[in-house]
Design a protein around this nucleic acid. Structure first.
Lengths: 228, 228
DNA sequence: CTTGACGTTTTGGGAGGCCAAAACCTAGGT
DNA sequence: ACCTAGGTTTTGGCCTCCCAAAACGTCAAG
C-alpha cells in the first residue's frame, strides 16, 4: 500500500533512471544504468541489489533488471515530485524550462511529501512540467507513453514536449521555429518517404525534417476527422 | 574566502546548533550539542572532530568547542538559508510560522545556493523569518543579538520575535494577547521588582508577567527620548 | 567447442552518519 | 591526596554511497 517507505536519494534516482530506460528498449543492463546515473558499474549493481531486496525490481544477474509494479509506482512518484519542483522553479522563481531540470534534481529528494502536495496546490495543480510532460497522479503505476511529433498524421493537433536530454543546439533551433514546450501545433502536411512535416505553429507554417521531428514528443489533443 | 565548500547536512546542522548554544552560555560541551541535535554523544564528538579538521571550530577535548570566524560564517549562512526557506513555506505555501520551522529543516540542506538567492528575491528580500528573527546578510560572521521583551524600558517600541523552541502552550497564550511574530509593541509601564509589563499591542493595553516576557525576543525600533 | 572480449558482479577501501558500550578524563567530595 | 561519578571520547558495528580493480559469466567468433 505505502508507495515509498524511505528510499534514499540514489535509490529514487535509480528507479527513475530504470523507468526511463525501460520505456525505450528491451532489457536494461546495469551498465546502461550506471551510464545514465553517471556512476561506476559496481555502484549501480550494488544499488540494484538493495532495491531487489525491497522487491522494487527483479534482478537476473548478468541478464537484466526490471521494475516491479511497486517499483514503477515509486519511480513515477519520484517523477511526479521532480516535475512539480521543476514547475516551481519555472513558475515561481523564473527559471527557463531547460534550466529547471538541472536544479530540481539537487533538492527534490528531501522534500517532504506534505510540502510537495502544498506546492502542487500553490502552483494551481499544473498538468505538465515545464518541458511539457504530464505530471502523473500520485499512486499510479503507469504513465501513458507520449508519441513523437513524427508519429502524428495530417490534421492532428498536439502540444509540444521536449526532453531535457535533447541536444541544446537542436533545442535552440526548435526555438527559432517557435517549437517550445506547451506550444500547440497542427500537422498540415506529412511528406512521404521520411519526408518533412509542415506544421502550423503560432499562426505560421513551419517545415521540420524527420530527424528533428523525432526528437519532439507530443500530447495529441484531438484528431480532426477530415473525410468520409 | 569561500564560505562553505561542501558541508554535509549534519555538519551544517552542527554548526547552527553550536552557534545557538554559544550565543547563550559559556563553554559548549559535546553533550549539550548531542542533546540539541538529538544524537548520541559519540556522534556529536565525531562530527566535531571532522569540523575541527576543516578549521571551522576549535575542539579542546573534554573542555569544550568554539566556532572559528569561518565556522561562524558558515553557521550564519546556514541560518540564512533556513530562514529564507521558512519564509517560502509561510508566504508561498501558507504554512503557519510555527509549522514552517519543522519542515524547513528537512530540505534546506540540498538547496543550491543559486536557488536560495532567487527564492530570496522572489520573496521580495524579506528582512525576517516568520518567527520574526532577522535574515542575515550573506557572508557575515556575526548577527547582532536580540534583546528580550523584558529588557525594554518604558517608552520603547519594538517588534516581536518568538523562538521556535518556545513551549507551544506559552505560544498559544501569547497569541491570545496578540503577541505574534512581527507585531509592534510599545512598553507603557514596567513595574519594579520583576513586576509585569504593560504593553500597547494592536490598539489595546496588555499586561505580561516577567517569566513570559523573558521568552519573547524583540527588535528595538527607536527609543522615544521621553524627557530632559 | 574452445577462447576471448566485454560486460557484470564481487571485493577491498574510504568517507559520512548513526548507535551502544567500553575506555577515559576531570572535577568535586571525602 | 584520593577516588568516584558523570560527562567525553574511543571502539566496534551497521548502513548508504562512491570508486578501482579483481573475479567472474556469457556469448559469439574462430
Amino acid at each position: 500500500m505505502s508507495t515509498d517507505s524511505s528510499l534514499s536519494k540514489s535509490e529514487r534516482e535509480t528507479l527513475k533512471a530504470l523507468y526511463r530506460l525501460s520505456r525505450d528498449g528491451g532489457d536494461v543492463h546495469t551498465g546502461a544504468l550506471a551510464d545514465s546515473l553517471g556512476v561506476s558499474p559496481g555502484t549501480a549493481t550494488a544499488t540494484v541489489k538493495r532495491l531487489a531486496e525491497r522487491h522494487l525490481l527483479d534482478h537476473k544477474p548478468y541478464k537484466g533488471v526490471e521494475l516491479t509494479t511497486e517499483g514503477r509506482r515509486a519511480a513515477i512518484a519520484a517523477m511526479r515530485r521532480h516535475r512539480i519542483v521543476e514547475r516551481f522553479l519555472a513558475d515561481m522563481l523564473g527559471y527557463a524550462w531547460n534550466e529547471a531540470d538541472r536544479l530540481a534534481g539537487s533538492f527534490e529528494h528531501d522534500l517532504p511529501q506534505e510540502v510537495e502536495e502544498r506546492l502542487f496546490v500553490a502552483l494551481d495543480r499544473p498538468a505538465t512540467c515545464p518541458h511539457g510532460f504530464p505530471i502523473p497522479e500520485p499512486e499510479v503505476a503507469d504513465i501513458p507513453s507520449m508519441p513523437g511529433l513524427y508519429d502524428l498524421e495530417q490534421g492532428d493537433v498536439a502540444t509540444v514536449a521536449i526532453s531535457g536530454s535533447t541536444d541544446p543546439e537542436v533545442v535552440e533551433f526548435l526555438d527559432t521555429l517557435g517549437l517550445r514546450p506547451g506550444v500547440r501545433v497542427e500537422v498540415r502536411e506529412k511528406h512521404p518517404f521520411d519526408g518533412p512535416l509542415v506544421l502550423r505553429v503560432g499562426g505560421k507554417d513551419r517545415t521540420v525534417g524527420e530527424r528533428v521531428a523525432r526528437q519532439i514528443y507530443v500530447h495529441r489533443e484531438q484528431r480532426r476527422e477530415q473525410s468520409a
